[in-house]
């Protein structure tokens, strides 16, 4: 039992660290939540369930995540906004020596300057998490979102 609690606690901490990074606009910390050979996808639930491969963003390496971080910082014009992630309790589906598979619901609230806070994106994370010397890291994170319409654009990672 204590091992389960330990795993649960460690996963929750990774989720919290991730949320803290993306809510603080700390894109280097976001990149650091992943191992080098990683997958990060933001995909509409429609595509996911119908077996269409297209994602809103689909990255296959830490390099691609770094390129996104650069894009956010240097090239993508956007109206400034805060985002706030509320992540539900992880549902741990399998634990092996190599990999923890789990899911967690999330809601992202967006607040534009001088505006009210609104629900921006709602969905679930489907994660594969691995042990590294620096603690747990994401090997794969898929953000499968219910939100049928993206309120204009997605700039920051979910």
């Amino acid at each position: 039992m204590s091992k389960h609690i330990e795993t649960h606690f460690a996963v929750t901490q990774l989720h919290a660290r991730y949320a803290s990074a993306v809510d603080a606009n700390d894109w280097d910390a976001w990149v650091d939540c992943f191992i080098d050979d990683c997958v990060y996808r933001i995909q509409p639930r429609e595509n996911f369930e119908r077996g269409f491969p297209l994602a809103t963003l689909s990255f296959e390496s830490k390099g691609m995540l770094r390129d996104r971080a650069y894009g956010i910082k240097e090239t993508l014009f956007h109206d400034p906004y805060y985002q706030r992630h509320i992540v539900g309790a992880p549902l741990i589906q399998s634990v092996t020596d190599e990999c923890i598979k789990c899911e967690a619901n999330y809601v992202v609230i967006r607040t534009k300057l001088s505006e009210l806070s609104t629900v921006y994106n709602a969905g679930r994370y489907i994660d594969e998490i691995v042990h590294t010397e620096a603690g747990l890291k994401l090997k794969s994170r898929q953000c499968i979102y219910d939100s049928e319409m993206i309120p204009n654009s997605i700039i920051y990672p979910i």
Partner: peptide, 21 residues
């Protein structure tokens, strides 16, 4: 085609900002 689609769409490197402007 899928990799390059990262450039386009609501989060695309070169089209997210079209919606913004």
């Amino acid at each position: 085609r899928l990799r390059q689609s990262n450039l386009f769409g609501p989060a695309g490197f070169v089209s997210a900002d079209d919606g913004e402007v």
